[in-house]
Design a protein around this nucleic acid. Structure first.
Lengths: 207, 207
DNA sequence: ACGGTGACACGTACGCTGTACGTACGTCAA
DNA sequence: TTGACGTACGTACAGCGTACGTGTCACCGT
């Protein structure tokens, strides 16, 4: 309940607006009453991260081809990030100390094992996917603090010196805009293709 | 000078320890004196991000094969993150509003163009690499807040239920440890290989 | 030599933060 | 009835970012 209020506040006014007094006020309660349910603010944010992570809905069919499964898992991950953009920032900025993130890991490992990877490679591939997904989401929600589409507009404006940065200057229009959905999928497909051609150590169905 | 003190403080005691008064004390100066050089704390952290980014040393030979160049650029990126682990957290957590990050972008775009990609694909590939690198570094430095190697040890301890998480449980030893250097390179090689086989729209040297 | 001007350091003060501590009120068990 | 316990609340303290005013210099045009 109290972490729900925290999430709502973060989405409404940003992570900087989070304070114990503010959350307590939203719950029509005294600030110190929160400490009957949460040991401290850090633990509360931990709870936020855990809650957001646990909201991921995996609908991938365990019997589907592994390519489809990782696609769907990646999208499930991205979807909650899209649903809680500003909370996503606190999720990825925080080292998880709970088991909340284990379900996604379990599903992903199962998928990769079914793709024929041995444990060593499955863990490797998993880490690569997570890195890519987290990095992508970080960029996407980084645009979000104000939800202003102006993030790169000011940086990669017309004021870049074409002599110093010829490529940046030439590609400025492309750098300025970004179809996040499309680019995310492009990267996922590239990664899937990359690991699909990776040699397996064990003989097993490559699907 | 003042951002140097901030960086030093961040590396010494973590990003949470940063306060205007604390930095001022380190500089043997009054807290308000800082505001003669910096408009506010947010701008100071922006300066930190800019400074760290600008410390990247690119030594890749512009005439070398593009594969070698992206490898070296990725490692250059990772190296400063390794040198300023806790500052890296504030760099990636922050949306850049300066031109400090443009030099890496310029170098990377030049490399990708020399690999034969048209502008559109070069930007795509760049974003994928950045996402992977940022995601990887985030995980690496996420271990760092205390520099304790125990980060996953507690989470993926022996207490995971093998019935609920069979794969996680089985691969726990592999999940618990991580040769960051080796895994980072593995991912970079995978990405390089992936984009190397990607069809080019323009005819140009694939090297 | 003189007054002006701007850069800079500093102290004080305000409203905010997290949270330690003491207190008060409800509901159940003995 | 009497305790114990869970929860809510108020007060208080140290620390935060920073707005504002003041003081001290070095410098420059006259």
């Amino acid at each position: 309940m109290i972490v729900d209020a925290a999430i709502a506040l973060i989405e409404r006014e940003g992570a900087d607006a989070v304070s114990m007094r503010r959350i307590a006020a939203d719950l029509q309660v005294g600030a110190m009453s929160l400490y009957n349910h949460v040991p401290n603010k850090a633990a509360l944010l931990e709870g936020v991260a855990e809650a957001v992570l646990s909201k991921i809905e995996f609908r991938d069919d365990p019997d589907a081809p592994w390519r489809d499964r990782v696609r769907m898992q990646a999208h499930a991950f991205r979807q909650i990030a899209h649903h809680y953009p500003r909370s996503t920032m606190v999720v990825v900025s925080r080292q998880l100390h709970s088991t909340a993130g284990l379900l996604p890991v379990e599903r992903a490992l199962a998928t990769l094992r079914s793709a024929g990877f041995d444990g060593d490679d499955a863990v490797r591939m998993l880490r690569i996917f997570i890195a890519y997904i987290v990095g992508s989401l970080l960029r996407e929600v980084g645009v979000t603090p104000t939800f202003a589409p102006t993030h790169m507009q000011s940086v990669v404006g017309q004021d870049v010196d074409p002599a110093l940065f010829p490529h940046v200057s030439e590609l400025a229009p492309l750098l300025r805009q970004c179809d996040h959905e499309e680019e995310f999928e492009f990267g996922i497909e590239l990664l899937i293709q990359a690991i699909a051609v990776h040699p397996r150590r064990r003989r097993q169905g490559t699907v």
